[in-house]
Every structure is written in C-alpha cells, then in structure tokens.
Simulated assay, not measured.
Amino acid sequence: MFVKLNERVYLNMNKITRMKIDHVEDGIRVRFYEGQEQVAKSKRFEKVEDAENWLNNILEKVK
C-alpha cells in the first residue's frame, strides 16, 4: 500500500522493514528502511512526541 509522506513522496509500506525516530543535527526525523537501506525520511520535528504522532497518523492510513 502506498502512503503519501509529503507533496512529492509516496512510500510503499509493504516493503518497509523498519522505521526509526532519529535525533539528527537539524532536529528529529523519522527514517524508513527497506532492509539496510534508508529509502525515505520525514520532515523535521522539534519533539519526539510530534514525530510519534505524525508516524501514527501515517500508520493509521495503512490499516
């Protein structure tokens, strides 16, 4: 199932093997992986809770 991450990116959730919330130098991002390769990342968030809420909204679309 394809899910729209933003205005330019659609992600095939059937191929995603893991999702990770990372603290990076410019903020917090959710990263999506197929096996060992990162295939997409989210926009920047200020708080981990904001990233978790955004990810939960994405996952609700998959159900």
Rank of each mutant, 00 (worst) to 15 (best):
F2D: 10
F2C: 02
F2L: 12
V3H: 09
K4T: 14
K4S: 14
K4A: 13
L5P: 07
L5G: 08
N6T: 10
N6P: 12
E7L: 08
E7I: 12
R8N: 13
V9E: 00
V9P: 00
V9W: 00
V9M: 00
Y10G: 04
Y10P: 00
Y10T: 08
L11Y: 02
N12W: 04
N12D: 15
N12C: 12
M13Y: 07
K15P: 02
K15C: 10
K15G: 12
K15T: 13
K15D: 15
I16T: 13
I16K: 11
I16F: 10
I16Q: 13
I16C: 13
I16A: 13
T17D: 14
T17R: 11
M19E: 15
M19I: 15
M19N: 11
M19C: 14
K20N: 11
K20V: 15
I21A: 08
I21M: 07
I21K: 05
H23I: 05
V24L: 11
E25T: 07
D26N: 07
G27L: 02
G27Q: 03
G27P: 02
I28D: 02
R29W: 01
V30Q: 03
R31T: 11
R31I: 04
R31N: 15
F32Y: 10
Y33L: 09
Y33R: 11
E34M: 13
E34T: 10
E34P: 02
G35T: 02
Q36E: 14
Q36F: 07
E37H: 03
E37K: 10
Q38A: 09
V39I: 12
V39N: 04
V39Y: 01
V39F: 01
V39M: 04
A40C: 03
A40F: 00
K41T: 09
S42Q: 10
S42H: 03
S42C: 06
S42V: 04
K43H: 04
K43W: 00
K43E: 08
R44G: 02
R44V: 15
R44I: 15
R44T: 15
R44A: 04
R44N: 08
F45T: 06
K47V: 00
K47T: 14
V48C: 01
E49T: 02
E49A: 11
D50C: 07
D50L: 09
A51G: 11
A51S: 08
A51K: 01
A51H: 04
E52Q: 13
E52T: 07
E52K: 12
E52R: 13
N53E: 10
N53Q: 10
W54H: 07
W54G: 03
L55D: 05
L55N: 11
N56H: 04
N56R: 11
N56I: 03
I58M: 12
I58A: 03
L59D: 06
L59M: 15
E60L: 12
V62D: 12
